[in-house]
Amino acid sequence: MPHIPQGTTDSVTLELFEPALEAALQPSPDYDVNRWLYVPNTYSEYRDILGTRGVKPLICVGINPSTAAPDALDPTLQSAQRIALANGYDSFLMFNVYAQRATRPDDMEKALNPALHAENRKAFRYLLSLSEHPAIWAAWGNIILKRDYLMDCMRDFAADGQAVGAAWYTAGPLLKSGQPHHPLYLKRDTKLVGFDIETYLSR
Results as ranks from 00 to 15, higher is better:
L112G: 00
Q100P: 06
D30G: 00
T190C: 00
P180Y: 07
L50V: 02
A20R: 03
Q6R: 13
P27L: 04
A167C: 12
R147L: 03
D30Q: 11
T52G: 01
V55I: 10
P180M: 10
D74V: 08
A123Q: 02
F157Q: 10
G62A: 09
S202T: 13
P5W: 11
Y200T: 08
R155G: 11
H181N: 15
L201M: 07
L130A: 02
R104N: 15
A139F: 01
L150K: 04
A72W: 12
I4G: 00
D196F: 10
D189I: 02
I59K: 00
R121I: 09
Y185T: 06
H181M: 08
R53M: 04
G7L: 12
D30V: 11
Y89A: 08
L21P: 05
I144H: 08
A166T: 04
M108I: 15
L77C: 02
A69K: 14
H133V: 15
Q26F: 05
R203W: 11
T42R: 13
K146P: 06
Q179L: 12
P173A: 06
N120M: 12
R53V: 06
D90G: 01
P27S: 03
D107G: 08
I144K: 05
R101G: 09
L112T: 07
I63Y: 01
D196A: 13
V61P: 04
A135Q: 10
L184I: 04
R147K: 14
P65H: 05
Y169S: 10
P70F: 13
L14M: 12
R82P: 08
M94E: 09
W168G: 04
P134I: 03
M108V: 11
A139N: 00
N87Y: 04
L50W: 01
H181R: 14
G178R: 02
A171E: 02
L77I: 01
A163E: 06
Y169W: 15
I83W: 01
A20K: 04
I144Q: 08
D152S: 14
K122I: 10
Y46D: 05
L130I: 08
L14K: 09
L201F: 05
L37T: 02
Q26M: 14
R203S: 15
G88H: 10
I83G: 01
C153I: 08
F95L: 09
D106S: 15
L201N: 04
P65Y: 07
N41S: 12
G172M: 09
N87T: 03
R203C: 13
A167Q: 14
L130M: 12
Y169T: 07
T8D: 14
D160V: 00
L14F: 05
T67H: 11
E109C: 12
P65Q: 06
F17M: 06
A99V: 06
M108L: 15
D32S: 06
I83L: 02
A171L: 03
V193W: 00
R35L: 15
K56C: 11
W168K: 05
Y31A: 01
K187Y: 08
F195M: 02
I136H: 01
I136S: 00
L50H: 01
P57I: 07
G165L: 07
R188Y: 12
I59T: 06
Y89W: 10
H117C: 13
G51I: 01
H117F: 14
N41I: 00
T76I: 04
V97A: 09
D189P: 02
D160K: 00
V12N: 05
A84M: 02
